[in-house]
C-alpha cells in the first residue's frame, strides 16, 4: 500500500514539474494594416513614405530607440517568434529542452533611389512553423508581390 501511494505521489510530482509550453511573440502586427495606396513608384519620395506610414520600426523592445532608416530601402515588418519547451524550471534553473523559430511573416519593402524617389513597393509573406513539430524543409518559399501602386518600371 505504501509503495502504491509513493508511486501515485511520485507520478503526480513528475507530471506537475514537467509541463510543456507553447509561447508566441508577435511584434508590430499592425504594420500589415498600413495604407500603402498613396505610395507609388516613380512619384512618391522617401519623405512622402515617412510622412504617410512613419519610419521602419525595430523588431523587439530591446532594440527600441534604433532608427532603421536606410537611404535606399525601407523595411516595415512584423516579427514573430514561436517557442516550444519542455520545462523543469520549477525545480531546475534551466529549461533543458527549448525549440524556437523566429522570422518576419510579413514585410513591406520600399526601394528608394539615390535621389529619394521610390522605385519599388513590395510585400512579402512567409510561413511560420512550430519546432520541433515542423522542419524548415517543409516551409513554403516566401511569397513576394509587387504592389499595384508600383506603376513605375
Amino acid at each position: 500500500m505504501v509503495n502504491m501511494t509513493r508511486l501515485i505521489s511520485g507520478a503526480a510530482m513528475v507530471v506537475a514539474l514537467s509541463a510543456c509550453a507553447f509561447e508566441k511573440h508577435v511584434s508590430n502586427e499592425k504594420v500589415q494594416e498600413y495604407d500603402k495606396t498613396g505610395i507609388v513608384a516613380g512619384k512618391s519620395t522617401i519623405f512622402d513614405v515617412i510622412n504617410q506610414i512613419g519610419v521602419p520600426l525595430p523588431d523587439l523592445p530591446e532594440e527600441a530607440g534604433t532608427l532603421l532608416v536606410s537611404r535606399n530601402y525601407l523595411s516595415y515588418r512584423t516579427y514573430e517568434q514561436r517557442c516550444f519547451r519542455i520545462g523543469l524550471e520549477r525545480i531546475a534553473l534551466i529549461t533543458p529542452f527549448r525549440w524556437c523559430y523566429a522570422d518576419n511573416p510579413y514585410e513591406l519593402g520600399i526601394e528608394v533611389d539615390d535621389a529619394g524617389l521610390v522605385t519599388g513597393v513590395y510585400e512579402t509573406r512567409r510561413d511560420m512553423i512550430w519546432r520541433p513539430f515542423h522542419g524548415e524543409a517543409n516551409l513554403a518559399p516566401p511569397q513576394t508581390v509587387e504592389l499595384s501602386g508600383s506603376s513605375f518600371r
Binding site: V15, S18, A19, C20, A21, F22, E23, K24, H25, V26, S27, N28, E29, K30, G54, V55, L57, P58, L60, P61, A64, L67, G87
Partner: peptide, 13 residues
Amino acid sequence: IINIGKTNTGLDT
C-alpha cells in the same frame, strides 16, 4: 501539463 502564452508588442516612433 501544458502552458500556452502569447506576447503582443507594438513599437512606435
